[in-house]
Write a protein that binds this DNA or RNA. Structure first.
Lengths: 112, 112
DNA sequence: TTCTTATATTCGCTTAAGCGATTATGTGAG
DNA sequence: CTCACATAATCGCTTAAGCGAATATAAGAA
């Protein structure tokens, strides 16, 4: 996290907050985000790249998938508080977590 | 603080972060902010109003002055962490605090 | 190679936001 | 009332950012 202001700009959009909330659960690929939040592929990709440029998340390519995960270190612990103490009190973000759980279950079943 | 997203948008601008950092010290009027940060009156006023609309600060009118102070409650404690653990490690914000101290001293001397 | 799937990028558009400069409003002093 | 001062609001402009739609890229499968 080079630039604190870039991080804060990344936090000032609802879609990116919703994505961040999901990534606090586990590493996810773009399609997991699309499915869970019911947003377009372009939108998911764009916001993930924005978060990556702000150095809040990192990516890892494996075959045709790109997996995104958190890159929040101790220097920006206030984001942990934001997520756990604020976002997760809100219904929208709770629902997103439930949808993620449901989606991952469906996805796993398809692969068996 | 009705809307968390509004608060985060208010935090995504450097001038507003600098103002917030000053208000963490004490209640200030618009001219204190202008002088300390060396910004125009219109700019100071605009950003203070933005912070007020986001319900991060409140105002109090006394004679021809408008005093602004923090309106950060326990529900958004992550902002305390942002200010104390992050902003105040940065030179810019430290300098602002020193400039505030100097300005308030000059101001008091003129009134005696 | 061709086809499919996952992801990223570009285009055109719309809206939000920041700025300096200026003007308006409101308060107190004389 | 008139003047000075503090603050807010408006105007015109520029730039950033978000969006859907479409296209490009890259990897694996066949």
């Amino acid at each position: 996290m080079e630039n604190l202001l870039d991080a804060l700009k990344a936090l000032s959009d609802e879609t990116r907050l919703r994505i961040l909330n999901l990534l606090y659960e586990k590493e996810l690929c773009v399609c997991d985000i699309m499915e869970t939040l019911q947003i377009s592929q372009a939108k998911a990709s764009r916001h993930l790249i924005y978060l990556k440029n702000a150095e809040l998340v990192k990516d890892r390519k494996h075959a045709q998938w790109v997996y995104y995960s958190l890159a929040i270190d101790e220097r920006i612990k206030f984001i942990d508080s934001l997520v756990y103490d604020n976002l997760r009190n809100l219904e929208l973000y709770q629902n997103d977590l439930q949808n993620l759980k449901d989606w991952l279950k469906r996805k796993t079943m398809n692969c068996e």
